[in-house]
Structures are given as C-alpha cells and as structure tokens.
Design a protein around this nucleic acid. Structure first.
Length: 956
DNA sequence: ATCCTCCCCTAC
DNA sequence: TAAGGTAGGGGAGGAT
C-alpha cells in the first residue's frame, strides 16, 4: 500500500476548495429556506448570536438549527473562530474540551428551554462540563439573582480586578509594580532556574567537547548497537532538601514556596518525595490540594544554590567517563557509553550503571536511577521502570514486552495535547498506537510527528545525542504577579525586563536581530486567577520585529519592544504577562561563557583531577594601554545644504553595491563618484548601467584630504550603511564616515597586511589592550569577543572555533571591512553583502525619526545627569566629579556617565554627546591610567551606541 | 520543493 | 499569601 495516499481522494486541491465553497452556499440556502418557512411569531431570541453545533445532540442538529435560525440566531456550520459566540454540545472529547476553551459551550437544552420559555435564558445555567472557572458560583448567582436576558455575565474590568487585588498591601508589594520585581522574581522562580541551568549545562558540555575533541565519538558511531544511559535523580529538589534534614526523611515532604500554613495555599509543589507520592501528592500540585490528601505533608523551601552544587558534582562524575553527554536538565542526563561497554552480553552495562549510581550517591547523598537502552527512547522508558533508586536495562531482544507495559503518555514527546488527540482516535496504550499505519499517523499529525509516533510504538529512535548545538534564542518572560495600574508602571517593568534580556545576551555573549514581544492579556471574561497573583485565563499575543543589525543594547531593544507593545494596543490593566525573546543570534564564537567559569568553581577534589580537562585558566588581563584618544578635527563645514546632501563615493566601492542600494543612494543623495581615472560625475541610473558610470570633474573633492580621523577599519560595507542615518548625523560626522571609506580604499594594502582589525568600534578595539582596572565583567566580555590571537591565554584560544572551510570565519555581528570582504570567495562575498543589505522600510523607522521609547502616555523628559540637562551644567558636573576623584573614578559613576552619554546618542543629541565626551577626556588628560581607561571605556561604549543607533561607525 | 513566519507543544 | 520560564521541534500556510 502506498503510504502517501491523497487525503482528498480523486479531488484535486482546486476542486476541493470549490467543493467546500459549494457546500457552504448550499447550506446557506437551506438556512434561508428554514428562516422563510419559520414561525412569523417567533421571537428574535438569539439575535446577534453566532451558534455552532458540535457532534451528536438531542434533539438532533437539524431541529436545533431550525430553532436557532427561526429565532434570529446565526447558525454556523463551521467553527470560525472570529464569528462563533456559542457552541452547542452534549459531550466533548478530550481534545475538544481544550479546543473550545475560549467559547461558551452550552447544552442543547439552552436552545429548547429558551424557546419554550420565550426568553433567552442565561447560558451559564447550561454550561457543559467543567470548562470554566467559577462555574458553580456563576450558576448559583444567576439562579439566585435572576440574571437579565444577557447570556454572558457582565464582563469584569481589568481595572476593577486590579484594584481589588492591589488593595492588599502585601500583594501590591509583591506585584510587578514594585521596582525590584523582575530581579526578585527570577531569583525565586524554579522554572527560571531550570531553564537557565539547562542552557548552562549544555554550554558546559559543548565547551568541554570543543576543547578536547573527543576520541570516543567515532567508536560510538561505529558501534553495532548503541548503549545509551539515562541518569535521572529521584525527586531531585526534595532529595537535596532532605539530605540536610534527615529528621524529615520518613515523612511526606514537598518543596514549595508557600509554607502551607495558610488554609488553601496555591503555591506549586515542585518536587515531593516518594512517601508523599504514596498519598497521592504529585509534582505540580498546589500545596492546598496536596494537604487535603496528605495533611501531614511537610513543606521545605527551595535551595537553589545547593541544587546547583549537586549538579556540578553529578556532571563531573559523568565527565570522568565520557564526553558523550546530552545535558537534559539539572538532575538528568543522557550518555552514550557504547565505547565503554565491551561485553553487554554479560551485563557489563548494568554493572557500570550501578557503579555510577553508587558514585553519585556517595558524592551527592542523593539517589539517581538509571535507564539503559539501545536508543534515547528506550533508555528514557527504562528509567521510568527503574525509579525509584534503581536501574533498568531494556534488552534488545525483549523490546515488545517492554513497550507493552507503557501508557501513551509515557512516550517522550507525547504530552497533554498529543495524548488527547490520540485518545480521540481511541488510542490509549502503546499497543493501540502500534496498530495505526504510518500514513494514518502522518496525515493526522504531520510528517515528523507521525513518524515519531509510529517508530516510538516500535521502540525505534535513531536520534543522536544532542551535544553540540549552539543556542538559537535568548528570552525572558514573566507571567506571575504582573499587574499594572498606570502606563508608567508598565514602562518601568518593561525596562527591567529588557535589562534582564540584555544581561543574558551579554553574558553569553551574543546579539540578535529579531525581537519578539509576548503579551498575555486577560481573557475577556476572566476573573481573578485562582492561583494567587497568577495570570488566570489569558490570550497570548506575539509580535516580532527584525533589525538590520544584531544588538544587545538595552536602549535599542527597549525602543522596539515599546513600539511592539504600543502596536498591540492592549489595555494596561489587562496585561497579565510579558516576555521578550531575541532570535537570529549572531553565530559568534561563544567560547567560554561565564557558565564555564562558574562551573570550575565547583570543585570536588575527588573528581576535578580526573575530569579529563584541567580547570580553565582565568582570563588574563594585559598591559594597560587605553585606546588611543584621537582628536576629532572638525572640517570646515559646507556653507550650503543642497536640496539633496552630497555624497562622495569611491568608484570601486560604488561598483560593489547591489543595484537596489545604488538606487537608494541615488534617491537620497547628490552622488559624486570619485577616484575614477580622471573623471568624476554623478552616476547614471544604476539599474541601467552596472558598468563604471561616467563622471564629471570635481577638483576639490578628494576625500583623502579629509582631516585625518581614526585608523579605520571594520567599516560596514556600503550596503550596510543607512543613508537616512547618515543624513541624520551632523555634517562633520557625515564627512568623517565618508572619509573613512576613502581611507580604506587608499590605504587598504597596508592595513590589511599589518593589522586586520585595528581599533575603531568597541567590539574590535579592546581585544588585547584591556586594562586590569576595568570592571572584571567588562574585561571578560571584551576579551572573549576578540578574534585576535594573542600571546595571552584567552578563551578564544582555549576553545578555538573550528574552521573547516579554511575561509575566514564570518561573524554576522562583526563589521565587515572591505578588505575582509575581498578575501572571501565570490559566492560567500555576495552572501555577506546580501545579508547586510538595507531594509529601507525598517530603517526609516529605526533611524530617521526615533520616537521616544515611551509607552502610551509619553512624557518627554530631557536626558539629564544629576538633574542637569544643559551642556554647561553637565560640564560642571563632570568637572566636580573629576575633582572629587583625582586619580581613580568610581565604577558606578563611570556607568552613570556612560549611561547618560549613551542616552544623548539615542536622543540624537550627538553633538552634545561628542562635546561632553571630549570635555571629559580633556579634563582627565593628566589624571593617570585609571581615568584614561575609564575614558576609553566610555568612548568605546559610546561608539557602540552610535553604531546601534545610527548604523554607522563613528569614533567620538 | 523550500523557505519563512506564526503559532502550538513539550520537557525539565 | 507567592514567584505559571524557556529553548527548541514541528506543523500550517503563505511567499518564492
């Protein structure tokens, strides 16, 4: 049989659509007939309602439809989310319950009773199943209070709900309105830790493998049957907690925030021991309901640092044996031990697993269980059999019996939704699942999922361990305790959330081009959540924006996130959750993120020597040599602004531009092509002529005569330059940029041979010349970002980027200089240019008119330093500062000043920023190295900010 | 076909 | 009182 039957049989796609359309119009006609033959006295009971009928009903669907249409209701044959207001059903399948969650689902009697009573009865009296929170209360009040003929109870307002909730001072202090909320929240969220740790552990494994390329991989691959072990601690949090509370060991114990002293605590149970489980307590349960089944339940607090320590010990034990590790979680890992097991037939793998367990027990005081199988699926299933505190080995000759014992939900990747859909197909055991054909599964669940189900039912799974994937996104979100009364509170919260994301980006370090804002908005009729300060029933909205260059800057992300939020137009008081996600990360060499460093701190003397990798060397700091402080010499400014500003372009630079960029430059500038043999002129239409355009004489325009600026490199390609951004710059700076390109052309031979990347932008400037006086994180970050081989041991060397192609490694994040570009093979070069092309529409928004990153109520406050806003005032502030700290500025103050100056850049007060920076540099000239490096730091940050904001490299 | 975007789903 | 995060896989459906 062919697995790929056309699901529509003989009907081709176009015909199928026609068929559906025909069917719809036919049904509409029928409906009109019904309406016409209807009872003229019928009341318009269902006026304005759109009603859909699901499944079998009593009375039958035709009768119900007649009643609905006769009484002015709109009958919907198909469930169109936008229109349907009510669904009639008598019973719902597992998955329909979920699908219809957002609708008013009522029993058929609602229709028949309403018709009989000649009035529209409250739909809440006819609710089907437990679809809605507070169903009983609503039904109760409606009976008692004789609700009007309004089917829906009056919708609560977010404002009123917030007011009630926040009337409680405790709640107010613990809500998102508190300035420290985000920080406190992430310090106490178990789920946050779980995610963070997983990322860190994956990174540790990746780095370890990068550092000492494994020799076992080949033997693993060539091994005839794989031996995969799944090691998983038993009730991890609870076990760690009990280790130091032996007096509770024989009692039912759970880990939760709430103490459980309160009557009906809505605190989640993160982990509970097996004694508690014997009472029916489960992970994820609320403390309140757990105490109902287990009144003696002991609640112990989270101890995140302890968990982390145990994890380090755990992973170090694994590293002793292999680098073939997939980090699953803080308490869980998969390892491929094929190479270590020579004789599986005599039970060598069991012996090894027991040894591992014993070692873990001795080192951590906690029990881990181990599942063994020939693939990931079987190993994980085996662990379920092994628990608690044991091993289980799935022998390859007994797979069928082994599988038969499992419920569907035990299969990894079969969760709530998939299980529900399968149950609707009358599948509830692995055996049932095995009866379905591949084609049936694939047509219902899609290609990959279908195949996964098909193979899982047979114990097949050919996925390799995931060990080497770099990270693809960074995000932060909060959906607990989120309540706002004012837009200012919302903005403050957004700021701190963005700050959090930026810190995470910088810690990796990486930058991203795609920003997604996620907003959870209280569902229309949702009351206050059952969980204290929870989000309750919400609608989730996502919106994404693409930048033209990767960023990790708070100001940039803030700006876009605010715009996204505004564009969604949601009610501030209804917001119940916010998240920011950064994607399209630059594929930077991410060797040696801080997780590695923190990992090394965990030393278990017994294991650290046998890890197979020595502890990392600390990053070396090098001779203090603050980046050269060049003078910016302002050239005589042109007296007249032409209608279009003039732009001089090197001929061969121009030639390199993609046609559309040429067109754009032409549209925005009075282009002057220079450096072409003896003639200069404005170019012809670029589309018409990709060949050297004729040029007219322009004797004085030699760009190389521009005042000398920086040793320039790392310029973006022309295609990366944003014309409108260039235009927004002060004229002197425009010329500086242009001069830079001129210099590159002129001096390219020498620059490319001597220094590939002389300092210009911060990302490239501080490579090997960071002073030891910089704040440590700064040193770390910038050294890591460096690509320079240096005699000092940097992490770059410790974890060299594999570069198999032999081409220079491309960093999307880096500015690509022309000479680097030239070294690329043509196809790659084209790709780079393409990827740096302008996106005109977006750039207009990001660069020409930056609307202040404000939320709905914009109050334009001028950027201030210590309350001062005018240049002379701020100058005085700076002077006082320097006088007070004649030799060594306080780091915090440096940060404050930097922030202020950067904000000026964001505000487009470039000239002020430049002025003030130059002033600061001037007054600190004789203040010694500490000040010099502080100034260099500020300079570097400012240049970076200019790059972020204007997309042009300017050295201030 | 193959990509991209916008979701949903899953796991811990 | 309470801390419902986060990364990645994959499907649907549209653009190319």
């Amino acid at each position: 049989m062919d697995d790929h039957d056309d699901p529509y049989g003989a009907i081709k796609f176009g015909e199928f659509r026609k068929y559906i359309q025909n069917k719809q119009s036919k049904l509409k006609e029928q409906e009109d007939e019904v309406r016409q033959q209807g009872d003229p006295d019928a009341l318009p009971l269902f006026q304005g309602l759109s009603i859909h009928i699901n499944g079998y009903t009593e009375p039958p669907i035709n009768e119900l439809r007649r009643l609905i249409v006769q009484h002015a209701g709109d009958y919907q044959h198909y469930l169109k989310k936008s229109k349907v207001t009510h669904i009639i059903a008598t019973n719902l399948t597992y998955s329909k319950v979920n699908e219809f969650r957002a609708y008013k689902v009522v029993k058929p009697a609602w229709i028949t009773d309403s018709v009989r009573e000649k009035k529209l009865l409250p739909w809440t009296d006819y609710r089907l199943g437990k679809l809605n929170h507070g169903q009983t209360e609503l039904a109760f009040t409606s009976i008692k209070g004789k609700q009007p003929e309004q089917p829906a109870p009056s919708a609560p307002s977010g404002e009123a709900l917030n007011k009630t909730l926040l009337a409680n001072e405790w709640s107010r202090q613990h809500s998102s309105m508190h300035p420290d909320f985000v920080k406190r929240y992430f310090e106490t969220s178990r789920l946050h830790y779980l995610s963070t740790w997983k990322a860190e552990l994956k990174d540790i494994v990746r780095q370890a493998r990068l550092k000492s390329p494994n020799t076992t991989a080949d033997s693993c691959l060539s091994s005839p049957t794989r031996v995969i072990m799944h090691i998983d601690f038993d009730c991890f949090f609870a076990s760690v907690g009990l280790r130091d509370r032996p007096e509770l060991a024989q009692k039912p114990v759970a880990v939760a925030h709430g103490k459980g002293r309160q009557d009906n605590s809505s605190s989640d149970i993160a982990s509970c021991n097996y004694i508690a489980r014997s009472f029916g307590v489960r992970n994820g349960m609320r403390v309140g309901s757990a105490q109902k089944v287990c009144p003696d339940l002991q609640i112990i607090p989270y101890e995140f640092e302890k968990y982390r320590t145990v994890t380090e010990v755990f992973y170090n034990i694994l590293f002793k044996y292999t680098q073939e590790i997939q980090a699953v979680s803080v308490d869980e890992a998969l390892i491929d031990v094929s190479a270590l097991i020579a004789h599986p037939e005599v039970g060598e793998e069991e012996a090894f697993a027991q040894k591992l367990r014993q070692e873990i027990k001795e080192a951590t005081g906690c029990n881990a269980s181990v599942g063994i199988g020939s693939n990931i699926l079987l190993a994980r299933l085996a662990t379920k059999k092994a628990k608690p505190d044991n091993i289980y080995c799935c022998k390859s000759d007994a797979i069928d019996e082994f599988l038969a014992g499992f419920h569907l939900r035990d299969i990894p990747r079969v969760g709530y939704a998939l299980c529900g859909k399968l149950q609707d197909m009358n599948v509830s055991t692995v055996g049932d699942l095995a009866k379905l054909s591949l084609s049936v599964l694939q047509s219902r669940f899609g290609n990959k999922t279908g195949k996964m189900l098909y193979e899982s039912a047979r114990g097949k799974d050919d996925r390799p361990l995931a060990m080497d994937q770099p990270r693809q996104s960074v995000s932060a979100e909060v959906s607990w305790g989120v309540r706002f009364e004012t837009d200012q509170q919302l903005k403050a919260f957004m700021d701190s959330l963005v700050e959090e994301v930026c810190q995470r980006l910088k810690a990796i370090p990486t930058k991203g081009r795609s920003i997604t804002l996620k907003v959870m908005v209280r569902a229309k009729h949702a009351e206050e959540a059952l969980k204290h300060m929870g989000h309750g029933e919400v609608d989730v909205h996502n919106k994404t924006t693409l930048l033209d260059a990767p960023t990790d800057q708070q100001s940039v992300i803030c700006h876009h996130a605010s715009r996204l939020l505004q564009s969604m137009g949601c009610l501030t008081t209804d917001i119940r959750g916010l998240g920011i996600q950064i994607q399209k990360l630059d594929q930077e060499d991410r060797s040696g993120s801080q997780s590695k460093l923190s990992f090394e701190k965990a030393k278990t003397a017994s294991t650290s020597t046998s890890l197979g990798h020595e502890p990392e060397q600390r990053l070396c700091t090098v001779d203090p040599s603050p980046s050269t402080s060049q003078r910016v010499t302002t050239p005589p400014s042109s007296s007249i602004h032409p209608a279009k500003p003039k732009m001089s372009v090197q001929f061969d630079v121009y030639e390199e531009l993609p046609l559309d960029i040429r067109q754009e430059l032409m549209d925005n500038y009075d282009l002057v092509i220079i450096d072409h043999p003896d003639i200069i002129s404005t170019p012809p239409t670029p589309v018409a002529s990709p060949s050297p355009p004729p040029v007219s004489p322009r004797p004085d325009s030699s760009v190389s005569q521009m005042p000398s600026t920086q040793p320039l490199a790392d310029l973006p390609t022309w295609s990366q330059l944003d014309p409108s951004a260039l235009l927004a710059l002060p004229l002197s700076m425009q010329q500086q940029v242009l001069a830079a390109y001129g210099q590159i052309r002129a001096g390219k031979k020498s620059t490319s041979s001597s220094t590939r990347r002389p300092p210009l932008t911060p990302s490239s400037s501080s490579s090997s010349t960071t002073t030891s006086r910089h704040p440590p994180n700064r040193v770390k970050k910038e050294s890591r970002r460096s690509k320079h081989p240096s005699k000092n041991a940097t992490l770059t060397q410790l974890y060299p980027t594999p570069n198999r192609s032999g081409h220079p490694t491309l960093d999307v994040n880096d500015e690509i200089s022309l000479e680097v570009l030239e070294q690329l093979p043509p196809d790659l070069r084209k790709e780079v240019i393409e990827s740096y092309r302008l996106k005109p529409n977006q750039d207009k928004q990001t660069t020409t008119t930056i609307p202040s990153a404000q939320l709905p109520a914009p109050e334009k406050k001028p950027t201030a330093l210590m309350g001062k806003t005018s240049v002379p005032d701020v100058r005085l502030v700076l002077q006082t500062w320097v006088q007070e700290y004649p030799t060594d500025p306080d780091t915090k103050d440096v940060a404050t000043v930097t922030k202020y100056l950067k904000q000026l850049v964001v505000d487009k007060d470039l000239e002020d920023a430049q002025l003030l920076f130059m002033h600061l540099r001037h007054i600190t000239l004789d203040c010694g190295d500490a000040w010099a490096s502080a100034v260099a730091l500020i300079q570097s940050d400012l240049s970076q900010q200019v790059l972020e904001t204007f997309h042009v490299p300017i050295q201030l």
